[in-house]
């Protein structure tokens, strides 16, 4: 037995399936952009450009440690270390943390110097959704180094209601 449908109906069914798929693909991205008010990637790119003050930002020397799959966006441990001898002649001045899709792009700016001894800092941050996180280090010679990590967030921050 062969249950072939009339060609017109087959085309309709495809159209309906296609429309459904399009909705599934479009809606999450759409709602995220609405929620954050900025196109993905733009917020962080602007923040980094502002921090760099027109200087070239190079990849390397910075190690950004953050879980790639986060259960709870309210408390995300993050650690940054920079490959630097931390001497008076060669040391890290600042380490800045930026995010791409939180309501605000800044996370923290750490001020270091030769007295720090080791260019390593750690804290805990909030993530409102799956996004990129970047750490930018400014050396005393003016050079800038960056590391970026993609993070998937299961439970977002900023949504819980005060009880």
């Amino acid at each position: 037995m062969n249950f072939s449908l009339p060609p017109a109906f087959q085309a309709d069914r495809r159209a309906i399936l296609g429309a459904g798929l399009a909705m599934v693909l479009v809606s999450p991205a759409h709602s995220q952009i609405q929620g954050m008010g900025m196109a993905p990637g733009k917020q962080m790119a602007e923040a980094i450009a502002e921090f760099a003050k027109g200087q070239r930002v190079q990849t390397g020397r910075v190690k950004l440690e953050i879980a790639e799959l986060v259960d709870n966006g309210n408390v995300v441990p993050v650690s940054v270390s920079v490959d630097s001898p931390m001497t008076a002649a060669d040391h890290v001045l600042q380490i800045a943390l930026f995010n791409d899709r939180n309501p605000q792009r800044d996370v923290a700016i750490f001020g270091l110097g030769p007295r720090a001894g080791r260019a390593q800092v750690a804290t805990r941050m909030r993530l409102s959704t799956s996004q990129q996180v970047s750490a930018v280090a400014r050396m005393n010679d003016g050079s800038l180094w960056i590391a970026t990590v993609d993070v998937i967030v299961a439970l977002a921050a900023c949504i819980e209601v005060e009880s």
């Binding site: 309210n74 408390v75 995300v76 650690s79 995010n99 939180n102 309501p103 605000q104 800044d106 996370v107 923290a108 700016i109 750490f110 001020g111 270091l112 110097g113 007295r115 720090a116 001894g117 080791r118 390593q120 800092v121 750690a122 804290t123 805990r124 941050m125 909030r126 993530l127």
Partner: peptide, 26 residues
């Protein structure tokens, strides 16, 4: 450290409640 600034942080709302900071000094 004995009056000299050895480490500082500028914090923003993206830092979790009960801020935790870890750093080093000589």
């Amino acid at each position: 450290y004995n009056g000299e600034l050895v480490f500082s942080v500028e914090l923003h709302p993206a830092i979790s409640a009960n801020p935790y900071l870890s750093f080093y000094t000589v």
